[in-house]
């Protein structure tokens, strides 16, 4: 897997410094972001890797779509077809409007493939790309985070996108008046005294859906990344002694085990994110 050995040459960072450094984004401000919320800053690394993954995924599928045949499919076409059919089946089961599915189907496919690829950046050794980047820039303190879904901005961006789509379909399916009516009369019923309670519940529901949607993916990938870093730290502490060698072996064993387990998490989280996207859009189609 990876080691933190590259920094021991100069002045070795403590474990805490190593982790904090790895969890700091490369952004447009030129230094680590200090405020919790600062909309003047853009995370360059998240943008690069998410766009890269999105373009990679879509490019492969586009290549297949260009030479697609209804006869005997090639291996790549079959693979893309499997993913597409999966997304299509799920969309069919949840969103019952065939017209909406013309957008929701492709949306589900995009979400699954994109999130899967972004999550998969976790499989790269945690120090590989940051070390390359530090070598290229000549700055041993250059920041770089390679997993866009381990950045809260990345996942909340997606979940807010889903929220906007939900709002769009709410208005489209129920009409603006119908939707506003639903905002005030569901879930508790139509009574003037209940209007504020209903409205508050609806707002909380939208907020909770969106934040939990983004946070779930972020939390899983962030924790996964953190564990890779801890495993890397364990391997980095190895020395030529009995305990040192066992640390090295522990790194190899734990790293392999976690990487294999992470394959499940990466796929599962991509699937869950897609399913929730469909469920939320499906809810926007149903009158309470």
């Amino acid at each position: 897997m990876s080691t933190a050995g590259h920094e021991t040459a100069a002045n070795a960072p403590t474990a805490g410094e190593y982790i904090v450094h790895h969890l700091t984004q490369w952004n447009t401000s030129g230094h680590a972001q200090k405020d919790i919320i600062d909309f003047s800053i853009l995370n360059i690394d998240t943008m690069i890797f998410s766009v890269l993954m999105g373009v990679l995924g879509l490019f492969v599928m586009w290549r297949v779509a260009r030479s697609v045949t209804s006869g005997v499919p090639g291996r790549l076409q079959a693979a893309v077809e499997i993913v597409l059919e999966m997304a299509n089946d799920q969309a069919k089961g949840i969103v019952h409007s065939a017209e909406s599915r013309r957008f929701v189907g492709p949306l589900a496919l995009t979400v699954f493939v994109w999130v899967f690829l972004m999550n998969s950046m976790d499989f790269l050794p945690v120090d590989l790309l940051p070390l390359l980047w530090q070598t290229v820039t000549g700055n041993p303190h250059a920041y770089l985070r390679v997993v866009p879904t381990a950045d809260l901005n990345g996942t909340l961006g997606l979940s807010i996108g889903v929220l906007l789509i939900c709002l769009y379909y709410n208005v489209k399916i129920k009409g603006f008046g119908g939707w506003v009516h639903e905002l005030f009369t569901a879930p508790f019923g139509s009574h003037p005294l209940l209007y504020p309670v209903n409205f508050a519940m609806q707002i909380i529901e939208f907020l909770a859906k969106t934040i939990s949607h983004g946070m779930r993916l972020f939390g899983n990938m962030y924790a996964g990344e953190l564990i890779f870093m801890l495993i890397a730290l364990m391997g980095a502490a190895w020395t030529v002694s009995a305990t040192g060698v066992s640390l090295f072996i522990g790194h190899v064993l734990a790293g392999s085990a976690w990487a294999i387990f992470h394959i499940l998490i990466v796929t599962l989280q991509a699937f869950i994110f897609m399913m929730l996207t469909l469920v939320y859009i499906g809810q926007a189609h149903e009158a309470h």
Partner: peptide, 11 residues
């Protein structure tokens, strides 16, 4: 874990 304009760009 900080929020910034990346959110909108990602959207």
């Amino acid at each position: 874990m900080n929020l910034n304009a990346t959110l909108f760009a990602q959207l």
